[in-house]
Simulated assay, not measured.
Amino acid sequence: MSMHIARHSFGNISGDKIPIQMLQKLYRHSSVATTMLYQANFMRRDTDSALDKVLNF
């Protein structure tokens, strides 16, 4: 597993469960804006919740 895949896997698993400031530290980003842009790809709580309502999970 490459480091790139590992970081994306972590981002996907953490989603919006970990505060953005902590993710910034974990990713070692100098700017929280960078972390927000990066993590936006993995934040899906609203869409997951909507799908759960439709699919009755």
Results as ranks from 00 to 15, higher is better:
residue 1 M to C: 06
residue 1 M to H: 05
residue 3 M to E: 12
residue 3 M to R: 09
residue 4 H to R: 14
residue 5 I to A: 15
residue 5 I to N: 13
residue 6 A to L: 07
residue 6 A to D: 04
residue 6 A to R: 06
residue 7 R to Y: 07
residue 7 R to W: 08
residue 8 H to Q: 14
residue 9 S to K: 12
residue 9 S to M: 12
residue 10 F to L: 08
residue 11 G to H: 04
residue 12 N to A: 15
residue 12 N to F: 14
residue 13 I to P: 00
residue 13 I to Q: 06
residue 14 S to L: 04
residue 14 S to D: 01
residue 15 G to M: 02
residue 15 G to F: 04
residue 16 D to V: 03
residue 16 D to N: 14
residue 16 D to H: 03
residue 16 D to W: 02
residue 17 K to L: 11
residue 17 K to Y: 06
residue 17 K to T: 08
residue 17 K to C: 05
residue 18 I to Y: 03
residue 18 I to C: 04
residue 18 I to P: 01
residue 19 P to D: 12
residue 19 P to N: 09
residue 19 P to E: 10
residue 19 P to Q: 07
residue 20 I to Q: 09
residue 20 I to A: 04
residue 20 I to D: 07
residue 20 I to N: 05
residue 21 Q to L: 05
residue 22 M to R: 05
residue 22 M to V: 12
residue 22 M to Q: 08
residue 23 L to N: 00
residue 23 L to A: 00
residue 24 Q to N: 06
residue 26 L to E: 01
residue 26 L to T: 01
residue 26 L to A: 03
residue 27 Y to S: 00
residue 27 Y to E: 00
residue 27 Y to F: 09
residue 27 Y to T: 00
residue 28 R to V: 01
residue 28 R to L: 02
residue 28 R to H: 05
residue 29 H to N: 08
residue 29 H to M: 02
residue 29 H to Q: 02
residue 30 S to L: 11
residue 30 S to K: 15
residue 30 S to H: 13
residue 30 S to F: 07
residue 30 S to N: 14
residue 30 S to M: 09
residue 30 S to W: 07
residue 31 S to E: 14
residue 31 S to V: 04
residue 31 S to L: 14
residue 31 S to M: 13
residue 31 S to N: 15
residue 32 V to K: 10
residue 32 V to N: 04
residue 33 A to R: 15
residue 33 A to Q: 14
residue 34 T to K: 12
residue 35 T to R: 01
residue 35 T to C: 04
residue 36 M to G: 11
residue 36 M to L: 09
residue 37 L to E: 09
residue 38 Y to I: 03
residue 38 Y to K: 03
residue 39 Q to C: 05
residue 39 Q to I: 02
residue 40 A to E: 12
residue 40 A to G: 06
residue 40 A to V: 03
residue 40 A to W: 08
residue 40 A to L: 08
residue 40 A to Y: 10
residue 41 N to Y: 11
residue 41 N to V: 05
residue 41 N to H: 13
residue 41 N to E: 12
residue 42 F to N: 06
residue 42 F to L: 04
residue 42 F to Y: 15
residue 43 M to T: 11
residue 43 M to N: 10
residue 43 M to R: 15
residue 44 R to S: 11
residue 44 R to G: 10
residue 44 R to A: 10
residue 44 R to P: 00
residue 45 R to E: 12
residue 45 R to N: 07
residue 45 R to P: 00
residue 45 R to V: 04
residue 45 R to C: 05
residue 46 D to L: 12
residue 46 D to T: 13
residue 46 D to C: 10
residue 46 D to A: 15
residue 46 D to E: 15
residue 47 T to L: 12
residue 48 D to C: 03
residue 48 D to L: 10
residue 49 S to R: 13
residue 49 S to H: 10
residue 49 S to A: 12
residue 49 S to V: 05
residue 49 S to I: 07
residue 49 S to F: 09
residue 50 A to L: 15
residue 50 A to M: 14
residue 50 A to V: 11
residue 50 A to Y: 14
residue 51 L to S: 09
residue 53 K to Y: 10
residue 53 K to W: 06
residue 53 K to I: 08
residue 54 V to A: 10
residue 54 V to R: 08
residue 54 V to G: 03
residue 55 L to E: 12
residue 55 L to C: 10
residue 55 L to V: 08
residue 56 N to T: 11
residue 56 N to S: 13
residue 57 F to V: 09
residue 57 F to Q: 06
residue 57 F to H: 07
